[in-house]
């Protein structure tokens, strides 16, 4: 037993202390957070635009079709593009998307972090778009009509009335998307980014002991996810309580 503990301590020292290898994990963790954070922002931006286009199209196509004209053609064109985007992104694995981005689309770029942010952002955008669209649709139609009947135009009604109510509905789901994304970025090592997973793997390669670094990586992910899940729960409770 005593030997086992001594062995464990040695392993720990070898994997984390020697050569300050713990800083590899720390740097990797920072990288994971950076990629996740900016990818989430990009995903939300893309999601808002797509959800707006798709729900505007759904809501207005009847009346606009009758009038025809440039506005209708533009909107149905954009709607088509969005549909294609959603189909492709949700129908292919994110690893493949990342590899395509890195080796084909941004083959000339040396900034692999940016490529990862863009890939994960574009991927996340597809899911966030559907979250937003569901949120917009779940706001009662009467709220929209009440806004319009007071004289607000379509966009004003969206901004003052529909979107604030939508955000309350989708905020917990957005946080969940962030949690999903944190874990999803663990594949960034595929394109040579030293994120948390890759850092653990590098230590393993250097020390030839897999247990310590990989379990450490897993625990860090787990801790972050647990913390964020708790925060989301609290947020949900707050939103429910303030439900007016």
């Amino acid at each position: 037993m005593k030997e086992w503990f001594a062995d464990l301590a040695d392993q720990f020292r070898l994997n984390f202390i020697t050569g300050d290898r713990w800083t590899w994990l720390l740097d990797g963790f920072k990288m994971t957070l950076v990629i996740t954070f900016f990818a989430t922002l990009l995903g939300i931006a893309i999601g808002v635009v797509i959800a707006t286009i798709r729900s505007s199209y759904d809501k207005n196509k009847e009346s606009m079709k009758k009038k025809g004209g440039f506005g209708y053609r533009l909107l149905s064109f954009l709607n088509g593009i969005c549909g294609l985007y959603l189909t492709v992104i949700r129908g292919t694995p994110v690893v493949v998307q990342l590899l395509i981005m890195y080796f084909i689309i941004f083959a000339s770029s040396t900034n692999s972090t940016m490529v990862a942010v863009i890939s994960f952002g574009i991927n996340s955008g597809a899911y966030v778009a559907e979250i937003f669209r569901g949120g917009i649709m779940s706001v009662d139609k009467g709220q929209f009509e009440a806004g319009r009947s007071l004289g607000f135009n379509y966009i004003q009604t969206m901004i003052y009335i529909v979107i604030p109510q939508m955000f309350k509905i989708v905020l917990p789901m957005l946080c969940n998307e962030f949690i999903v994304l944190i874990k999803e970025t663990s594949i960034a090592g595929y394109v040579g980014i030293r994120d948390l997973t890759k850092a653990g793997d590098l230590i393993r390669g250097r020390t030839f002991s897999a247990f310590m670094p990989l379990i450490a990586v897993a625990l860090i992910y787990l801790a972050v996810v647990i913390i964020f899940t708790k925060l989301v729960k609290r947020l949900e409770r707050r939103l429910r309580n303030s439900e007016h």
Binding site: D140, G142, Q143, E145, A146, G147, S149, L150, G151, I161, P164, Q165, K168, H244
Partner: peptide, 15 residues
């Protein structure tokens, strides 16, 4: 703006 409307379901802004 010059035509007010009152709905069956009230439709007050919930937020």
């Amino acid at each position: 703006q010059k035509i007010g409307m009152v709905f069956q379901q009230f439709n007050l802004f919930e937020n």
